[in-house]
Design a protein around this nucleic acid. Sequence first.
RNA 1: GCGGCAGUAGUUCAGUGGCAGAACGCCUGACUGUGGCUCAGGAUGUCGUGGGUUCGAUCCCCACCCGCCGCCCCA
Length: 434
Amino acid sequence: MPTLKAVRGTRDLLPPETALWNRIETTARQVFARYNFGEIRTPIFEDTSLFARSVGEETDIVSKEMYTWEDRARAQSEKPQSLTLRPENTAGVVRAYIEHKLGETGQLQKLYYIGPQFRRERPQKGRYRQFWQIGAEVIGPPSAGSESPLRDAEVLEMLATLLDTLGIAGWTLELNSVGSSADRERYNQVLRAALVDVAPKMCVDCQRRVVTNPLRVLDCKVPEDQPIIETLPKIGDSLGQDSKDHFAQVTAALEAAGVPYHLNPRLVRGLDYYTRTTFEFTHGGLGAQNALLGGGRYDGLSEAIGGPKAPGIGFAMGLDRLVLTLQAKEADHSSASPQVADAYIAPLGEALNAPALTLARELRRAGLHIELGDGSFRLKKSFEAADKAARRIVILGEDELQSGILTVKDFASGIQTKVPCVELAAHLAKPGGA
RNA sequence: GCGGCAGUAGUUCAGUGGCAGAACGCCUGACUGUGGCUCAGGAUGUCGUGGGUUCGAUCCCCACCCGCCGCCCCA
């Protein structure tokens, strides 16, 4: 039997790397709390139709990237249910919002999530089939202010603060408005009409996009096509007055708060539910996967899946990509240092194993990080093991057991001291070097 | 899904159609209750998997798997 390995596009996260993951998650939770967001946890799989109706039947995500299967029918008379591993989390959050009638509270719901998502794409660095997203949604009835441009600006300001707090330097906020669904429909027609004449002069990918998804032409990176793209109508010109005013208030609030942004009229996003404000935070050094996070408004999403009017705005950040960015930054001063315990307890002889466990129990209950050795080790081996795992070694031999006075050696200073058992916890709680 | 590059020890990587290598790391001892430094010795392994060519394949060929780069798309 061939050895089993993690399936394509999935991976194990091991210590010490997981410490960085935890740091990022903890920071995110702290920042979200300051903005009064609460955590929501939705199921990892949902009814397939939830994603078809929200993300969009024609999107790449739904049409070719989902892990979908038929759940066994419970009875002969029942039809099997089509289930799907979530490819994103906004749909699940909005489904929960509707299901639990959160709109009936009359309050704005501010919810964040952290969890794995699944898309069957070709793996690459920064792109996995099981990947992690940290996201948040602000959603509620219009009477709660859910459509206010202030909410958009607040979310963007929060993201800028979160990235800064994490220590991610050099991010760029790409901002655009794709208008209401009516605006977008109008623009699609205008764009299609304009492309009829110029498309034959463009790259083969663009010629295909003209048919499949004209908005995507704007995203083309082929240098020869750029002059042509410049001549195409801008989505901003197709926006209704309401959309224009809304967007103007978002940018005005960002400027007032001092959040730098870059207007990008070509920013188009691949999920059908986005309306009006859309954005990405990008970062160089991620290669082709340069988007750290993306998001936008989804004013019609709730209705699309059978709920009440509940405009909202949200984002999803790629946790895997945050980790990559921070690892690249911290590469020179080895962020991957293994964790180091306060002390290593070295029992001398197997008869000391049980007393050593008791001592470790007391110290751990006092809040210390303790590594417990083994009495079968020779002292030299205990020292070697201790030096790798801890800042100090506590020697527990027959002498120490009889006298109740333990031998403690600090590795950084090389100083060895005798410490009475009752004072040991306090002694070890002090920083190293003494 | 398409195009390209790669896969050898725990890790980073050399290498060759004829016995599988280095560095670091690991283990043992010198040193029986004192680590790091030093010295002596030792083990690293299905050479990604399966076929083919060949007297003989880790090396050449094919397929597959996995990773990486670009495209597509996205976080």
